[in-house]
Design a protein around this nucleic acid. Structure first.
Lengths: 349, 349
DNA sequence: CCAGGGTGCGTTAGCGCACACGCAATATAT
DNA sequence: ATATATTGCGTGTGCGCTAACGCACCCTGG
């Protein structure tokens, strides 16, 4: 193990000088700085995290900005699980976490949460953000001081300098859903798709991917319906009713969001008819229940727990260990069905 | 943050005494020990990993015992990927790793690798073991000194005191394969299963699970064939040929191991006939290729990269951080198909 | 009676690093 | 010219913990 003493000795300077070079604190002549840098490279010096941690004895604070865990059928509890796990693991490294939840169907609530963070931005060593309300999130991002890194998870904001994005390729997950649906319904069928509003890139992409899978398949008729959640959860029931009324021969139904359970609930209550294949997203409690009951055929999981876990970890590795972080971490598109669902529930890294 | 000084002050003793209590090094009277323990509990004292690491300035060595990475169609490269990643991440905590590879089709080779470890067992702070050759692995385990912890991954050895097991539920993965096969082949079909020898609990369970899925399905005829890999890789080709010859109406083929690609290769070369649905295991290069070409329909992944990564991490958390480790970590049974395979390739935590 | 050993404690020297401080030597302002 | 910054460097202290060391005190056996 090479230490700053070793470097100082070889460069014929004191450890103070080495330290100044390492931390770019100036007060070093060009020549000595160059010499020290040279030796650091030669010896491939890496500071001891233990010694650094001890000397600094600083506690780091990461802020989390995300929807309230109870929203979207408690979907947002899932990243929470991973965040808590990371928090526990990283406690020993003096990492602390502060949550800022917002109501994703209330712009005011979102802006209030942002304001809380921006009131004392310098107290945070990093931020983990689910930028669900894309347009308003952009304003927030602009006001984050440049020296504080932030990570996106779940959804993405283009043209923004985040440390990394952790999530899934939405379009491709739609394509995969299409493939699964095609296996389930056979060559000739009518399939309904529920487009969820308010508009969200994420969900639009899923629908786009799904449609694209069938784009050259004349046997499959795809009909797109809309449900506006700004008008309340009842919108889902209403549209499902319409779909069933208007399509007596319905073979399958694709729901590009976590509210698949609401659809399942309605379909289930209307029993006795021919089975409708149902594919949706995310392992919320309700979705799990309807999958086990056989109402939902496939669920796509985005590994939300792991997104949360990795988000915190990325901040830790960047801020504390000063490691390089990849620009994005794309998680697999997990296919969940009755036979493997138990192993995906609260599955963390 | 509470320190040993704080504890010492409250207990009216010196830090040396506190240290002796913490490390159970004796030389402390019953009464003072009790008092110190009491205060430690009260303050919920957790030693600083930074200070410990610095004071100890010890490097830890973990040994890995697993098959040569090139075996089973380079399947064993996959856990290697995760192990290397963990190694890189944990380097800063003074963790080092030493590999012991063996030829899983040579008992002698296995025993030699074991002997290398047992020659100086005390140099290792922990072991990560893939106990593929179950019966011989048992002998090895018995000879590991009791103070050195070991972790199993990939497969399991019953009645043995490992720190944790990291792997998948083999039987259930077979059930899942059955489900997928049933969706693919429809209500009436003949399905062949290749039983891989030498006997391996892991693979037997997968076959068992697969058969159990169809146990009450009169429309599906399941025919089990055997291929003995001890006689070389050609056994796979030979049995595949026999299957095709004896089952003109073959609807599907289930291969419970990584050598699915070998089967695919053979089926692919015999083109022009009706499509045979193929389900197998693991993302080896060959399997990936045949999946992308459409020869393999589904692959089950056991997340081998993550198994390796987590194995090292578990040892680290137990040995260095002295954290409690769960008795087993069961990984999800991932369904991989053409549309999502790209996101599973070399996917690590 | 005392040598030898065990018991119960306090003291101390690092581990490698961060950072404040101090002290010359030079540069700039008054 | 003197007063005041600025540059370039070395020194020293402390972060919290580990483990060796040392010093009384007691017990035991010859």
């Amino acid at each position: 193990m090479t230490t700053i003493y070793e470097i100082a000795k070889r460069a014929k300077v004191s450890i103070g000088t080495v330290d100044r070079v390492l931390h770019k604190r100036g007060r070093v002549s060009k020549e000595t700085e160059e010499k020290v840098r040279q030796i650091i490279l030669e010896l491939n010096y890496k500071p001891s995290v233990y010694a650094r941690g001890l000397a600094l004895s600083k506690t780091y604070l990461f802020g989390i900005l995300m929807p309230e865990p109870t929203q979207d059928g408690c979907f947002w509890q899932l990243p929470e699980v991973g965040i808590r796990k990371a928090q526990n693991e990283l406690k020993v490294y003096n990492i602390e976490i502060k949550h800022f939840f917002y109501d994703k169907y209330s712009i005011h609530s979102f802006q209030q949460a942002c304001a809380s963070i921006l009131a004392h931005p310098e107290t945070f060593d990093g931020l983990l953000i689910a930028p669900v309300l894309s347009r308003f999130a952009e304003d927030f991002i602009k006001n984050i001081p440049h020296n504080i890194p932030y990570v996106f998870f779940d959804s993405y904001l283009p043209n923004v300098d985040c440390l990394t994005f952790i999530g899934q390729k939405s379009f491709q997950s739609g394509v995969l859903s299409g493939k699964l649906m095609s296996i389930l319904v056979g060559r000739d069928a009518t399939i309904a798709v529920i487009r969820i509003l308010p508009e969200d890139y994420h969900l639009e992409d899923r629908v786009g991917g799904f449609q694209s899978f069938f784009s050259q398949d004349p046997g499959i008729r795809i009909r797109v319906y809309e449900a506006d959640l700004m008008k309340g959860q009842e919108a889902i029931h209403a549209v499902t009713r319409r779909i069933l009324e208007e399509n007596g021969d319905l073979g399958g139904l694709f729901v590009p969001s976590a509210c698949t359970g609401n659809v399942a609930e309605f379909i289930h209550s209307r029993n006795g008819q021919s089975p409708i294949r149902l594919i949706g997203y995310d392992l919320t409690d309700e979705n799990i229940r309807f999958m086990k009951e056989g109402v939902i055929d496939f669920l796509i999981s985005q590994r939300p727990e792991i997104q949360g876990y990795r988000g915190i970890h990325a901040l830790y590795r960047h801020v504390v260990l000063k490691e390089a972080i990849p620009r994005e971490m794309i998680l697999p598109i997990d296919i969940v069905t009755r036979e493997n669902i138990d192993y995906y529930i609260n599955e963390i890294v």
